[in-house]
């Protein structure tokens, strides 16, 4: 083919959205589950889940196709990307682990003690660089005061019964 005929205009390359396809597969599975399980419900309770399940599964199939052909629109509320989330992954996972443990343990151990421990761990998780002993003591004191103030606000001012658990 001559040089002249090689200079053809072609659409800009579209990148495939693999993460979007995986997410859509999750929604497809959920939609399918909602649709199938609706058949074991009474007719009144089943109609809406059946409709929504079918709609979600259908849209998810369309989105999987769109993701694999690299079509996307203008976003106002952007998601993140796997590459962005790889930065500081250890800290991210630590935070998640602390939040999960906090949510599961505070009714057993007690709100105050769990919150204090979790807050101290999160303080270190969010710390970049070294702290002088004075500043470290100051930060720990601030975390302690914060937990005490919010605990008292909830339990004594707003009268919310905080779980006392094994400790308090």
């Amino acid at each position: 083919m001559s040089q002249g005929t090689d200079r053809q205009a072609v659409p800009a390359a579209r990148s495939k959205d693999w993460a979007g396809a995986v997410g859509s597969a999750f929604f497809f599975a959920t939609g399918l589950y909602v649709f199938i399980t609706s058949f074991s419900m009474s007719p009144m309770a089943a109609l809406f889940p059946r409709t929504i399940g079918a709609v979600m599964a259908t849209f998810a199939i369309l989105q999987i196709a769109a993701s694999l052909t690299g079509r996307s629109g203008q976003a106002v509320e952007k998601g993140s990307s796997v590459a962005e989330q790889a930065e500081g992954l250890g800290r991210r996972l630590t935070l998640l682990a602390v939040m999960v443990a906090w949510a599961l343990l505070f009714p057993v151990v007690g709100m105050f003690v769990t919150s204090l421990l979790a807050s101290v761990v999160l303080m270190f998780t969010g710390l970049f660089g070294r702290l002088s002993p004075f500043r470290l003591a100051l930060y720990l004191a601030v975390v302690f005061v914060m937990v005490v103030v919010f605990y008292l606000l909830m339990s004594n001012v707003l009268n919310i019964p905080m779980p006392r658990g094994l400790f308090f």
């Binding site: 807050s119 970049f128 914060m146 919310i160």
Partner: peptide, 26 residues
């Protein structure tokens, strides 16, 4: 950040619990 993170995290936990005083919400 090292103080902001525990502060916000604590507010999310206490705030969720305060809705119905129910650990399930957390």
């Amino acid at each position: 950040k090292s103080l902001l993170v525990p502060l916000i995290a604590f507010m999310t936990v206490v705030g969720s619990f305060a809705i119905h005083s129910n650990p399930h919400d957390v």
